[in-house]
Computed example of a mutant assay.
Amino acid sequence: MNLIAMVATVVATIVLVSTDAAEAYTLFGRLVPIFAFVTGMSVVVNIAAQVGVFDAVTRALETVAPVRAGARRQALWSGLILISIVVTVFLSLDTTAILLTPLAIAVARRNGLNLMAVAFAVVWIANIASLHLPVSNLTNLLALSGGGFTSELDYITAAWVPATIATGIAVAAALVINRLPERITSTTAHHPRREQVVADPLLRPSLITLGLLLPALASPIPYWLSSSVAAVVMVVLAALKRRDLLRLHLIPWPSLLLATAMSTVATAVSVLGGAQLVQAMLDDATPLTIATTGAVAANLLNNIPAFLALEPAVSTTQGYLALLIGVNTGPIITPWASLATLLWHDQLLRAGVQIRWRTFILFGLILAPVAVVVPALSLML
């Protein structure tokens, strides 16, 4: 798949530059900050995980939970859902996927929570609850940069109703799956012993770096700059104290390559006449139709290229919101529909948890129609 994605990227880039160099530069200008952010966060999170940061965080979370077993599990489960929502809303769905997945799995293992339910709760909330703020989802940032909204405040004002409805659906789905029997393959991944984690020379600096990074991501500082600076700090610290941590697999190269290929192909197709075709198909379409089309396109391609391909067909705030509902809440069926899903699955594998893609697809086929249709209908009231 990597070779196919690479060839597709090269061919599409050549076609795009040959037909419309300005469009190619615009595309790359919009995508570079996105992938810089994901790359930086992946480096930070994966180094932090290896030095025991998530073990330290889970111990703190468990410390405040009740001692009695039933109340403890309920409190930890509710806490994980709440944290997932807050991180998704303020720090983006990709941050939730790569930051909270190992944390949630660690908490679930230590306290007897349903691993399958916890894993799905994280990925569903990451995707479906990503409408609230522009920074919640990178497609929201694309809509803002493309002129879909006059300002961040304009976006928040317009999106709060469908965003709240979508988040409620995600939470309800998480509660339902928590009542189902656990059917996943889980192995015990290698984790340092607690004494080694506490003694690791990078533990304290990593905690400080993450502690400074999270509020920075919610500030006016460019999100890609914050994650890139944090990644450089972590790499320098590792180079000085733990060179064994510096490996190429810290960055999810296959996921980034696949998303780049699909985005480039989508834009090339749009320049070659796809934009006119999309405009003709969705001319005077209802928000429900636009949202459904966006969800289907996201699951066939990926949510970022789906947004780029369908963006020429929308021009109003309502149209942009409908498209965002489709490409944000809908891509929970195919593995490649959302970069966050690929990052989530990568973190599961690193934690020794194997969820079959057919299980993910089956649940997605049930949940996606509800997650797309109900918020879209709210735009028509």
Results as ranks from 00 to 15, higher is better:
Val64Thr: 10
Ala69Lys: 14
Gln50Gly: 07
Ser78Cys: 12
Ala60Pro: 02
Thr58Asp: 14
Ala49Val: 07
Ser78Tyr: 00
Ala65Gln: 10
Ala75Asp: 04
Asp94Asn: 06
Gln50Asn: 11
Asp94Phe: 13
Val53Glu: 00
Leu80Thr: 12
Arg73Glu: 12
Leu103Met: 10
Gly79Ile: 05
Gln74Gly: 09
Leu99Trp: 15
Leu82Met: 14
Val45Leu: 00
Arg68Ser: 14
Met41Asp: 07
Gln74Trp: 07
Ile98Phe: 08
Gly70Pro: 01
Leu80Gly: 06
Arg68His: 12
Leu61Val: 04
Val67Glu: 12
Arg59Ser: 11
Ala75Lys: 04
Val53Ser: 10
Leu61Ile: 05
Leu76Arg: 09
Leu100Thr: 01
Met41His: 10
Ile47Lys: 03
Trp77Ser: 02
Ala48Cys: 15
Ser42Asn: 03
Ala97Met: 02
Val86Ala: 15
Asp55Phe: 06
Ala108Ser: 12
Gly79Asn: 08
Ala97Gly: 10
Ser42Tyr: 08
Leu76Cys: 07
Ala69Ser: 09
Val51Phe: 11
Val51Leu: 10
Leu61Gly: 02
Gln74Asn: 14
Val67Phe: 07
Val45Asn: 06
Ser84Arg: 02
Val53Ala: 15
Ala104Asp: 01
Ala60Met: 13
Leu99Lys: 01
Glu62Asp: 09
Ala48Glu: 09
Glu62Cys: 10
Val53Thr: 11
Arg73Met: 09
Leu99Met: 15
Gly40Ser: 08
Phe54Asn: 11
Leu93Val: 07
Ala106Phe: 05
Leu99Ala: 15
Ile98Leu: 15
Met41Leu: 15
Ile81Met: 15
Val86Cys: 13
Leu103His: 01
Asn46Val: 08
Thr95Phe: 06
Leu99Cys: 13
Ala48Val: 03
Ala75Pro: 04
Thr58Val: 14
